Computed example of a mutant assay.
Amino acid sequence: MPSASHATLTTPVTPELVRGALELEETHDGLLPHRLPAWARAQCADGQLAMAESQPSGVRVVFRTRATVVELETVPTKRVYAGAPPRPEGLYDLLVDGRPAGQASATGGNTVTVDMSTGSAEMSAGPAGSVRFDGLPDTDKEVEIWLPYNEITALVALRTDAPVEPAPASGRRTWLHHGSSISHGSDAASPTTIWPALAAAAGDVDLVNLGFGGSALLDPFVARTMRDTPADLISLKIGINLVNADLMRLRALGPAVHGFLDTIRDGHPDTPLLVVSPILCPMHEDTPGPTAFDFSRLAEGKLAFVASGDPEERAEGKLTLNAVREELERVVETRAKDDPHLHLLDGRLLYGERDHAELPLPDGLHPDAAAHRLIGERFAAHVFAADGPFGVGD
């Protein structure tokens, strides 16, 4: 390997190099991407949301360079669940001029150990690590490093064998999406193969992903964040977390959805806005939450979930996925009479009964890598088609 393979130039990671984050926080570890702004984070003390929004799903470091070697120094924060099988290492995906060109995991970093029986967590600090990609073409090119969707990642510096400069704006439309852990990426193979990233690539749009594991709960501060975020296209995938958390009753759901949509429309009155109902999840189709860990499966070394509600409780207003779908259909049908840019997509068109027979949810809740690809392809086919809600002619 020639001497040019040595990464001798150091470039601090600055906001101009980061896309897909709504805020970047200066920390002692480095520049920490957030997917909610500080004022929004201050309105919720939920540790689950704090973890989810600071995991950089959809966030990427983007620059132009002739470098043949690129190293990204980071301080990752990895999670370990006591008594559960090890979680896969977070992956960094490298794209060169939009094409996959490598994958790597970062060494070092912090570890958070979670006790699922008590909910307690302990942090142990570790050193900075890095990911390295070499053998890149010695040409001027756009380089993207997509950060792990499942590891909090503080950005320290780039090391290269040629100068780095910020990439110009892509000129593509910006798609702002909000959803649950499925949109966040749970159990996908890598950051560019979570279903929203796959759909964004197929639709030739720039993704801003506000998919928050366990936290798509119609929070008003999320609606205000979306109201204030520039976007050409907006989508909401609503339902599964409301059932998981047993958060509200049917009486509250309709007004909450109306309020969320009202707030978004305050900032985006004519933007194509798509509401997506839940994909199929058999355990919660007609059984309310809350969702619980399946400790019998955990004893076998497998992470899985169960519905702990009673189907009879739907009559009392407890939410099931079918109840949510019916209410979303009612709300969108009512509003669409005066809002021609509002659309609804039944999530079962993305993943339904036939798909579950072929690609069952491994833990009862989350799609695997193959199902993420299926959902992303179907979303693009339904939504980004010329006559779809996000078609160029909308």
Rank of each mutant, 00 (worst) to 15 (best):
D134E: 14
D270I: 04
V131I: 05
W175S: 04
N244H: 15
C281A: 14
A125K: 05
V69M: 08
L158F: 07
P362Y: 07
L273K: 11
P56K: 05
P168R: 13
E142I: 14
L147M: 02
L24D: 00
D206P: 06
D219C: 04
H382V: 05
D97A: 11
N241A: 00
D219Q: 15
R132T: 08
A52Y: 12
S124N: 10
L217T: 10
N322W: 05
S181G: 01
A369P: 09
G289M: 10
F305L: 15
K318S: 13
L321N: 13
A369C: 00
R64I: 06
Q48Y: 10
S190G: 12
E151W: 05
P272E: 11
G376H: 09
L303G: 02
E285G: 08
S120W: 00
K78N: 06
K78W: 03
L274C: 03
D355L: 09
L9P: 07
S54Q: 15
A385K: 09
D246Y: 08
A370W: 07
S120Q: 12
E53I: 12
T65I: 03
T27H: 02
D387Q: 09
L253Y: 04
P255A: 06
L342P: 14
G388V: 08
S57W: 06
A200C: 07
V112H: 08
T320A: 02
P362C: 13
Y351N: 04
L342R: 07
S124D: 10
A4R: 15
N209A: 09
H6F: 13
F390S: 03
R172Q: 13
E16F: 13
A200W: 01
A380S: 12
L95P: 01
G364P: 10
V80P: 00
V275H: 14
T193C: 02
I375T: 10
N241H: 03
G108Q: 06
L32K: 10
H366A: 05
P100Y: 00
H184I: 02
H343F: 15
L95R: 11
V143A: 13
A223K: 09
R66H: 14
R66A: 15
R64A: 12
L217S: 14
K302C: 05
F293W: 08
L210K: 03
R335F: 11
D363Y: 09
R373N: 06
T320F: 04
G83P: 14
H356V: 03
P389V: 12
L236Q: 11
L210V: 07
M116N: 08
V18Y: 07
V331S: 04
G126N: 01
P360N: 01
L176G: 10
S296Q: 11
N244K: 11
A52N: 06
L217A: 09
A106V: 03
